[in-house]
Amino acid sequence: MQSGSWPIAALTSLASAADLNVPACPATATASFNQAIPDLAPCPQTTVDLCYTSTALNLVFTAYGETNFYFDPSQTTNGDIWAYEVMEAFIYKGTDNPQTYFEYEVSPNNVTYNAFIFNPSRTRAAGTPFDHAFVSNPFGDGFKVTTALDKPNNKWISTSSIPLALFNAENPKGTNWRMNFFRTVTGPTTYPDQQLCGWKNTNAMNFHITPFFGTVAFV
């Protein structure tokens, strides 16, 4: 049965069971976290505000408690920005534990990483395939991102828009997805070591464990 033909009671049940119910814009829902992965140590407060239109998923990442705003200014789109400070969203349309999903990252200097991840073990297990299919022209494809650094208030904010056509998901109301959100924290005195922070704890120093993705309903 297609989601568009589900009875209202079934859609209500799926939404009520979700970790996050995302409304149509301009209303938003917020995923908030302040714990490290996997030890649950204190981590700087991070929020992700989400909403959708008929054609886009909009995300506003806010990194509080920032002291370093640490990035490599030489890096460009789809570079290894994950080695420095970034905020991230892992996104999958569906309700199972995905083997392929979209990874979106943004750094304090407004550089993005955009790739479909092939992770058939679902845990990035040693000795198993793990690969990336990059979106090579995200801005030409309709992605949008604007990042502002608020150094006096120790925070940075990235406002992003991701085309829903990437997931064959125009007009997503009534659909259910799996997602997780992360932040990496480092600086000139600690690099390359990072503190890993997340919305749903993966119980390992590894973001790519899909059974721990949260559940998200578009309502």
Score class of each variant (00 low, 15 high):
residue 114 N to E: 13
residue 114 N to A: 11
residue 114 N to R: 14
residue 115 A to I: 12
residue 115 A to S: 09
residue 116 F to N: 03
residue 116 F to R: 06
residue 116 F to S: 06
residue 117 I to V: 07
residue 117 I to L: 12
residue 117 I to T: 01
residue 117 I to Y: 01
residue 118 F to A: 15
residue 118 F to V: 12
residue 119 N to Y: 02
residue 120 P to E: 02
residue 120 P to H: 02
residue 121 S to N: 04
residue 121 S to G: 04
residue 122 R to Y: 11
residue 123 T to D: 04
residue 124 R to H: 04
residue 124 R to F: 00
residue 124 R to Q: 06
residue 125 A to V: 11
residue 126 A to T: 01
residue 126 A to C: 06
residue 126 A to Y: 03
residue 127 G to D: 01
residue 127 G to T: 00
residue 128 T to P: 04
residue 128 T to R: 02
residue 129 P to V: 00
residue 129 P to W: 03
residue 130 F to R: 00
residue 130 F to W: 05
residue 130 F to E: 01
residue 130 F to H: 01
residue 131 D to T: 04
residue 132 H to R: 15
residue 132 H to I: 06
residue 132 H to D: 10
residue 132 H to C: 09
residue 132 H to G: 06
residue 132 H to F: 15
residue 133 A to H: 12
residue 133 A to L: 14
residue 133 A to E: 13
residue 133 A to W: 11
residue 134 F to R: 07
residue 134 F to D: 10
residue 135 V to K: 01
residue 136 S to P: 11
residue 136 S to R: 15
residue 136 S to N: 12
residue 137 N to A: 12
residue 137 N to I: 09
residue 138 P to R: 03
residue 138 P to Q: 04
residue 140 G to N: 14
residue 140 G to T: 06
residue 141 D to T: 10
residue 141 D to H: 10
residue 141 D to E: 15
residue 142 G to M: 11
residue 142 G to E: 03
residue 144 K to H: 14
residue 144 K to P: 06
residue 144 K to N: 12
residue 145 V to E: 12
residue 145 V to L: 11
residue 146 T to G: 02
residue 146 T to L: 11
